[in-house]
Design a protein around this nucleic acid. Structure first.
Lengths: 333, 333
DNA sequence: TTGTACGCGTTATCAT
DNA sequence: ATGATAACGCGTACAA
């Protein structure tokens, strides 16, 4: 028997045949179920090594309905914020023996449905999702089908859904207070055009933090650099004497800053800019970005924890569910 | 029969029962194999819709040995270059009905082995990998086991391996020529500490492009911002009159630039810096980064194409395998 | 401590 | 055009 070709991978059966026991015994050893002698154990493990046997996850999953795989679904893969979350989720998953899928929906509603469908078929053990649009539409049907999901920054009320949130409203408040504290009064916000009412924490935080004599001014754009550029354009059109801006995320804040620079407006002297996320770039650009830092590390850990709790049927611990944020003061405000 | 609970997902059997045909017929319709009447087709598809039946990929994969899933394995998820490649791979994969796994190895050799093992078990149809260390060690055993892989920027000679490369040596040459053309003569390179001889395209390109009267000066550091900082430190120690630097990637170039800024050295007047990759940030920082642009879009497309060719047993097309790179001139050099 | 029989949901083979 | 039966590789229930 040659061992060099593209032969079929060894199965439980092959190992059993080599050792001279039943497949069931090999299965017991491999899964460490107990109920076998030490001698058998040794011989089986040796054979496993020799044949480089690996359990077939699909065959196993067909029975156990577990795949040891979770997925992270984010709107865009090109926003560093989401990849940094992915990094954290992956580490947290790895520590408990879970693999992580990373899928992006391209900020496209239909794509989100397709992605969730696909994950459903692949029988992932659970999904962590930064949802698009209203939660009810795409997520609930899948939850109803039995797909367990942790939804970020969005309240949920379903036995197959859990929530993990950052204190975005608090963050927005901190941003406004910082702007006010530095003497800014003509404030505007560049918000995300696609976020539904139920997830407008930043907007409500922003508006609520304004003193009574300041009118809320909010424009909505796509959540990327170009959106930031267009956002500042529109704000300046609406209020030419603008002196402070809060952006939905750092990418938009970066876009706004660059547009201001291009117009010859000095940041922060003439207009101060505060972002949200604290992605890695934000410390590197010039002027470096003042921003609300979201704790991606903890977000990933909490999300995986919540997913495991959901899987194992543990009750929701209403405690540590809202992750605090931090104002990072740099040059832009 | 209630449709609200956490019932088992509908199976081929359930659909067959509703329609009143055999499971095999339903399978035929679902997979569009032909061999059924139009009337049957209609009725089956209606039932599929009604029961929201989705094929179980694991059961299917158990027999077809296909999962319609590929994986991308990169050293780090936090380097925008790799996520931008991932974005491209995902789009290319999606167009041919493939799902994409994204896994990172944390620049850790053992992790790479573990990740490949895991992907192997999950029976992915193929893997695109930015390898760590020598190709022989971790990759060949898996290739030998039957895992088909496309390896980036690394020559391969195995029936289960293919290569997709960018013209990195050419890029390095362009970088050097640009530095020379702007009057720089005291050149140094900050290389990647972990890249094995077989993958040092940038280094050889750099050294070969130097005129005879310029001694190659190369230091090796980790491929991140801090590595860039340390790299420029060491270069300046070795050659205090340094006036031009080529970095392994943009992250390192960014780190070097920041360190120079911190030391009060003017970039590019005193020292010019050229990076490699052209990640999104590079256009945003100040001074913006002159760099060798790698075509991530095409890299992803070619990699997926190569993987499909490998899967389908098509011969290697030696043609379009090396992807050209472009010098992007900005402020830093 | 170990083995046997069955089933997971699908596709392949062969028959009708 | 359609169906019956086996097979993929594993875990579960139960028997020995």
């Amino acid at each position: 028997m040659s061992t060099t070709g593209t032969e079929r991978a060894a199965t439980l059966h092959d190992v059993a045949a080599v050792v001279g026991v039943s497949p069931r015994t090999v299965s017991r050893v491999v899964n460490d179920e107990g109920g076998f002698s030490d001698a058998t154990r040794r011989r089986v493990l040796d054979a496993v090594e020799a044949l480089s046997y690996r359990p077939n996850i699909m065959a196993r999953g067909l029975i156990t309905r577990r795949t040891s795989t979770i997925a992270l679904v984010a709107p865009v893969i090109s926003d560093p914020f989401f990849t940094e979350v992915a990094d954290s989720v992956q580490r947290a998953a790895r520590e408990v023996g879970l693999n992580m899928f990373f899928a992006s929906t391209d900020d496209d509603f239909d794509r989100q449905v397709a992605v969730l469908d696909s994950l459903d078929q692949h029988a992932v053990d659970g999904v962590i999702v930064f949802p698009l649009g209203e939660i009810s539409e795409p997520l609930l049907p899948h939850a109803e089908r039995g797909l367990q999901m942790v939804v970020v920054d969005t309240p949920t009320e379903h036995r197959n859904l859990r929530t993990v949130s950052s204190d975005l409203a608090g963050g927005a408040r901190m941003a406004v207070e910082h702007l006010l504290a530095t003497g800014r009064r003509k404030l505007g916000m560049i918000a995300h055009v696609n976020s539904p009412p139920e997830r407008r924490w930043r907007e409500t935080g922003f508006c609520n933090a304004l003193p009574d004599d300041i009118e809320p001014l909010v424009v909505r754009e796509s959540a990327d650099i170009d959106g930031g550029r267009r956002g500042i354009d529109r704000l300046l059109e609406l209020r030419p004497d603008l002196d402070g801006v809060f952006a939905y995320n750092d990418l938009m804040a970066l876009g706004a800053t660059r547009e201001l620079k291009a117009r010859g407006v000095d940041v922060p002297r003439e207009i101060a800019v505060v972002g949200c996320d604290d992605i890695q770039i934000s410390a590197l650009v010039s002027p470096s970005l003042t921003t609300i830092q979201i704790d991606r590390e903890r977000l990933g850990i909490e999300a995986v924890r919540a997913l495991l709790a959901l899987r194992d049927g543990e009750p929701e611990d209403s405690a540590g569910s809202v992750i605090p944020v931090t104002l990072i003061c740099r040059e832009s405000a």
